[in-house]
């Protein structure tokens, strides 16, 4: 169902690719770059292609989002970029360092907040930060000072002596982000940072992430929440079934995908009787009309009047409207346009 609106990463990347003859490791610029990155798992029931060739380019200081439904391959991609999953094809670099050839070098430059709670449950809040600092070569004194700083900055001051097991979900997530920042990573990876958090906590966490971004932190975030990507990211890659469907700024994506309002009408019978395609043929603003089973879906630049026409046309054909929805251009309509499927969170 993908069409011509699928875009390659910005041409800046292509230009860089051509000028860098000295080899990928020496390329300055990109904070993250992947080239046809792939991961196939071999299981007893055959091969599973988790990632089927993803190419990305993230600039330093950028807040980049991988958006897609669960199982799209986002976490696998982050896993490969953070060296804990070994790619089966393609290449990837973080801060110019090859993730397969030099995983230790990559680990020095990244901070990772995985989806699961990987806090050291045997240690307190401060100790989690202290030892992270020491793992990265800080002296005990510096590590403690750094821990202090982060405990304050992340609003954990009154929980500093608490054991990691005793934290609430939001506190644990904040501590994990703080811990990922102890050693001043070049790139911060966040895998579904707000999954499972209550709305208030989530919005607070967004503020924290925005503040980090304002400070210049390069961030790659995966999310299956459209509104999270829209709220935070400079650029987004829409991922599904292990492939990038489209990448760009939110605005570019909306325009690239047709910037359409999507109108969906469901009837109580076969929607083919409405013959919506012929009905709307005269309207230049209508991009695409899909009829499937009992439903008609219209992609349009100008939604005025269309819903009414579909209702009337349905009545003429003896059909009653059971359900109607009009989605303004958003990442959700982009996803619909690209895949022809409802976005499944």
């Amino acid at each position: 169902m993908t069409d011509s609106t699928v875009q390659a990463p910005p041409s800046k990347a292509e230009a860089a690719q051509e000028t860098a003859a000295a080899g990928p490791d020496s390329r300055p610029g990109a904070a993250i770059r992947t080239d046809d990155l792939r991961k196939t798992y071999t299981t007893s029931r055959g091969n599973v292609d988790a990632v089927r060739g993803i190419s990305l380019d993230v600039a330093p200081g950028e807040f980049f989002g991988l958006l897609g439904p669960n199982g799209a391959g986002k976490s696998t991609t982050i896993g490969m970029l953070t060296t804990l999953i070994v790619p089966t094809g393609g290449r990837a670099w973080v801060s110019g360092i090859d993730v397969v050839a030099n995983p230790v070098g990559v680990k020095r430059t990244i901070g990772v907040v995985p989806q699961n709670n990987t806090l050291d449950m045997q240690l307190s809040v401060t100790e989690n930060l202290e030892f992270r600092g020491r793992f990265f070569g800080l002296s005990r004194r510096d590590a403690l000072r750094r821990a202090d700083q982060l405990v304050n900055a992340f609003g954990l001051t009154d929980r500093r002596r608490a054991m990691a097991t005793d934290l609430s979900g939001g506190q644990a997530r904040r501590l994990m982000i703080a811990r990922a920042l102890v050693h001043r990573p070049d790139v911060l990876f966040l895998d579904e940072p707000t999954a499972g958090l209550d709305p208030q906590t989530r919005v607070n966490l967004w503020d924290t992430l925005r503040a980090l971004h304002d400070e210049g932190q390069t961030i790659l975030l995966t999310t299956h929440y459209m509104e999270e990507a829209e709220a935070l990211c400079d650029r987004v890659a829409v991922v599904d079934h292990g492939l990038v469907l489209a990448a760009g700024t939110i605005d570019e994506l909306k325009q690239g995908a047709g910037a359409d309002t999507v109108i969906t009408v469901r009837y109580d019978g076969d929607a083919a009787a409405v013959d919506a395609a012929t009905l709307l043929d005269g309207r230049p603003t209508v991009g695409k009309v899909e009829t499937e089973g009992d439903q008609v879906r219209v992609f349009t630049k100008d939604p005025a009047g269309i819903l009414g026409e579909l209702v009337t046309a349905g009545a003429r054909a003896g059909l009653t409207v059971r359900d109607a929805a009009q989605l303004k251009p958003s990442l959700e309509t982009v996803f619909l346009t690209l895949t022809g499927r409802e976005y499944r969170e």
């Binding site: 020095r108 600092g133 793992f135 990265f136 070569g137 800080l138 510096d142 000072r145 750094r146 202090d148 700083q149 982060l150 304050n152 900055a153 992340f154 001051t157 920042l181 102890v182 050693h183 001043r184 924290t208 503040a211 980090l212 304002d214 400070e215 210049g216 932190q217």
Partner: peptide
């Protein structure tokens, strides 16, 4: 930097640089 919890400033720049 540590005393003033100005989160946007302290988190990255006010930190000792690690040399693992």
């Amino acid at each position: 930097a540590a005393a003033a919890p100005d989160r946007t400033v302290a988190v990255i720049t006010g930190a000792p640089e690690p040399h693992p």
